[in-house]
Structures are given as C-alpha cells and as structure tokens.
C-alpha cells in the first residue's frame, strides 16, 4: 500500500573526478594565433592548440558554432603535445581553464577528452543552471527532457528525433536556467557509440567525416553534427513540456508509461549533476520543472517505433493545446 523511495547524495558530482588539485599549465585569457573560438549554445569555448590537424577537425565538427572572437567567459581548452621521450609513447595534455584533465596518447582520443573536459567544466562552473544527465530536444517550442544513464539510449533517441525534424538542444545535459526554468541549448555534436553506427546510417545521419574516435572504456565513437539535417535543426531556449525516462531494451517494442510528477521529480534528483552547487535551490527548480511537465517512462528497443510513439504523443498534445486555445 505504501510506497516511498529515496535517493541520496549528488551522484553527478561524485561521478566527476576532481582534478582541481592537479598541476595547471597556465591558461591565460590573452588571445593567441593558435586559438579558435566557438559559441556552442550557451557555452563559449576557445580551443588553443598548436596541432593544426586538431584545430581543423574540431572547427569542422563545430562549424555551425564558430565565432570570430573569444568570449570573456570562454572555456579555454588547451591541447599541447608533451615533449618527446624515448621511454614513453607520444602524449598530449588536455586542460580546461588551466586544470589538467587528460593525458591521451593518441590523436583519436583527444576530441572525446575535450568533450569530457567541457562537461566537467560545465558541472563545475555553471551554477546558474540546473544540470541533468539527459538528452534534450524541442518541437513546436516545447522542450523534451530524456534523462538517463549512459547506455539508456539518450543519444540514439535524440538522433532519431533529430532525423524527424525535432530540434536539438543537447545529448548529454539538460541545462535549465534556474530563474526562467527554460531549457538552454548546448548543441554539442551527438556522440554515438559503435553499436549504434548502423542505426545512424539508417536514420540518414552520417558520422562526421566517417571518422571513429576513441572514448575510454566506451570504445569507438563517432560524432553526428546537429546541423546535418539543416541549419535550423538547433533549438533556442524553451520551456520543458515532457520528461521521458528512456531505457533501452534490445528488441523491445516501445512502451510509454505515464508516471506521476512526484515520481519524475524524485528520479530527476538522481540524474542531477549539481544538486549541491546549483545557484538556486535545486529541489525547488526540479519540482517546478516537473510540475509543468508531462512525465513518462519509456522502454524501447526499436528507434523508428519509438520515434513514432513520441511523435504521436507530441502531436496529440499539440492538437489538444490547439483545441483549448
């Protein structure tokens, strides 16, 4: 009869390693000729590296976000080759805002390390936003949050919806402005694991340059640029209207189960990266977001059928809204 659930701690924070005590390599704010600048949604990024090939590759991935000038609050990512040593394989230092984050040994590892570093810096420094581990999409001005652990199918689902004309916000973070409760875009390139490469092919979403990158224990990944479908495929900020918790189950027909807003808010706490460091009380923000949203759990194994189901849901909501209006 009684049901009560509890979630403890700040899992997002604890998952993130704290490298802040590591040595720094002196990132400065002065602009250098080796800098390239980007405004990826609400996240300004400057890549500083003498590696021309890396600059070219990163700039090509983020051509839709390239800007001419460095923002004053830019995340400065430095990638520097380590001095050559006969005893060690070649290595690179990847640091963000002066904090050394990774020391990859292969070029194919660097971009995933950059993406990870940005994630880390977002969770460390963006206290004006509630941060959830989720993909986020937009349709008809309404935001959809798809929270889930790694492997839940967030990115694949985001790609499936992108291919159907939904607009993209992010495949890793739901960034919610704590004052306006609006979802903010951080349209980083979609990161796709190797098993999902054929799915992307079938969706008509080519991997950037057909290249494979190495992302730690996740193995080979590829990137899909959100502007593959068109320049208008990146959304601007919007209110949250649907919260859907996806769970991938191979071969399963999709089932969308409504859940209570309290259940959804409870689960959102477990996916929050900055429960403790959020500028406004995260409990208030999460409950306010859930209060205005429709909430579901989704079990699915077929991307097309799943997208059909979500399409039906969103279309139904739009027509109901139109009738009320």
């Amino acid at each position: 009869m009684l049901e009560i659930h509890d979630a403890t701690g700040d899992p997002g924070q604890s998952r993130k390693p704290d490298y802040s005590s590591n040595r720094t390599n002196g990132a400065g704010s002065k602009e250098l000729p080796t800098d390239v600048h980007f405004q990826i949604g609400v996240i300004p990024v400057t890549l500083r590296t003498p590696l021309r090939k890396l600059r070219r590759d990163y700039a090509s991935l983020y051509d839709f976000a390239r800007v001419d000038r460095k923002s004053p609050n830019s995340f400065i990512i430095e990638v520097t080759p380590k001095p050559f040593s006969l005893r060690h394989r070649p290595r690179f230092d990847v640091s963000i805002n002066g904090h050394l984050q990774f020391e990859p040994s292969r070029l194919a590892e660097i971009i995933p390390c950059i993406e990870w570093s940005i994630n880390w810096e977002i969770s460390r420094s963006l206290s004006g936003h509630l941060q959830l581990h989720a993909s986020t999409m937009e349709k008809n001005g309404c935001g959809i949050i798809l929270p889930g652990e790694s492997g839940a199918g967030k990115s694949t689902l985001a790609a499936g919806l992108l291919a159907r004309g939904y607009r993209y916000l992010c495949d890793e973070f739901a960034l919610i402005d704590t004052d306006t409760l609006q979802l903010q875009p951080y349209p980083r390139v979609l990161c796709v694991k190797k098993p999902a490469f054929p799915v992307m092919e079938a969706l008509g979403l080519p991997l950037h340059g057909r290249k494979h990158y190495l992302k730690g224990i996740k193995g080979y990944v590829g990137y899909v640029k959100p502007n593959t479908i068109g320049d208008a495929s990146v959304a601007s900020s919007c209110p949250v209207r649907n919260i859907i918790f996806p769970k991938y189950q191979a071969g399963a027909d999709p089932v969308l189960m409504p859940i209570s807003r309290a259940q959804a808010a409870f689960s959102l706490h477990t996916y929050c990266f900055n429960l403790l460091s959020c500028h406004r009380n995260s409990f208030d923000v999460i409950t306010s977001v859930a209060r205005n949203a429709n909430c579901f759990r989704l079990v699915s194994g077929d991307i097309q059928k799943t997208c059909d189901l979500i399409d039906d849901l969103v279309r139904g909501q739009s027509s109901a809204h139109a009738k009320i209006a």
């Binding site: 009684l2 049901e3 009560i4 659930h5 509890d6 979630a7 403890t8 701690g9 700040d10 209570s260 807003r261 309290a262 259940q263 808010a265 409870f266 706490h269 429960l275 403790l276 409990f283 409950t287």
Partner: peptide, 16 residues
C-alpha cells in the same frame, strides 16, 4: 504525492 528533501543528507524521498 509528496517529495521531501533533507539538506543535511542530500537525500530526496518520494511519498505516495
């Protein structure tokens, strides 16, 4: 339904 947040333990509880 209810949600209870304990700031001392950073734990959230859902009450049906």
């Amino acid at each position: 339904e209810g949600l209870v947040f304990d700031e001392e333990t950073n734990s959230t509880h859902h009450l049906n």
